[in-house]
Simulated assay, not measured.
Amino acid sequence: MKPDESLNVLGGTLTPCSFEPLTGFFRDGHCNTCTADRGSHTVCAVMTGEFLAFSKYVGNDLSTPHPEVGFAGLKPGDTWCLCAARFLQAHDEGCAPRAHLDATHVRALEVVPLTVLVDCAAD
Rank of each mutant, 00 (worst) to 15 (best):
V46A: 13
V43N: 08
A99Y: 12
P76V: 05
G49W: 05
G70L: 03
A96H: 11
C120H: 12
G12M: 02
V9C: 10
V111T: 15
T48M: 04
H66L: 13
V111I: 15
T48R: 07
W80M: 01
T15Q: 13
R86F: 02
S55C: 09
H100M: 11
D4G: 04
C81H: 01
H100I: 14
V58G: 02
P76I: 07
A36N: 08
N32R: 14
F26N: 03
D4H: 13
L109H: 04
D37R: 09
D28N: 15
L114K: 13
L114D: 08
G73K: 10
A53Q: 12
A122Y: 11
T35I: 08
D37Y: 07
T33M: 07
V111K: 01
V69T: 08
D61R: 11
T15H: 03
T13G: 01
A103V: 02
C31F: 05
H91D: 12
G94D: 10
V58N: 04
M47W: 09
F71T: 00
E50N: 11
A84V: 03
P76N: 10
G70H: 02
C31Y: 08
S6Y: 01
F25P: 01
K2M: 07
T104D: 01
G39S: 13
P3V: 03
E110S: 13
S55Q: 12
M1C: 11
C44R: 00
P97T: 10
P65W: 05
L10G: 05
S55G: 10
R98L: 15
G70Q: 02
V43A: 02
G39N: 13
N8K: 06
P67M: 07
E93Y: 11
G49C: 07
H91C: 03
V111Y: 06
K2G: 08
D102N: 10
D28E: 08
A103N: 06
F71A: 06
P16R: 05
C95V: 15
T15L: 14
S6K: 11
D123S: 14
N32T: 14
A96E: 03
N8F: 05
T64G: 07
G77P: 14
D102Q: 14
C44T: 03
T33G: 07
L7F: 13
E68P: 06
S55K: 05
P16C: 03
T23V: 12
W80C: 02
L114I: 14
F19C: 00
Q89A: 14
V112T: 09
L10S: 13
D28L: 07
R27W: 00
G70A: 04
G59I: 02
P65D: 06
M47N: 09
L52G: 06
L22T: 04
N60C: 06
G59W: 01
V106H: 11
P67A: 04
C31N: 07
C120Y: 01
L109P: 10
R98C: 09
C83E: 13
R86P: 06
D119H: 11
T35N: 13
E110G: 10
D78F: 00
T42F: 01
D28T: 12
P76M: 10
V9S: 05
R107L: 08
D4R: 14
S18V: 00
C120R: 15
A72L: 06
A72H: 04
E5Y: 10
L101I: 12
D102P: 00
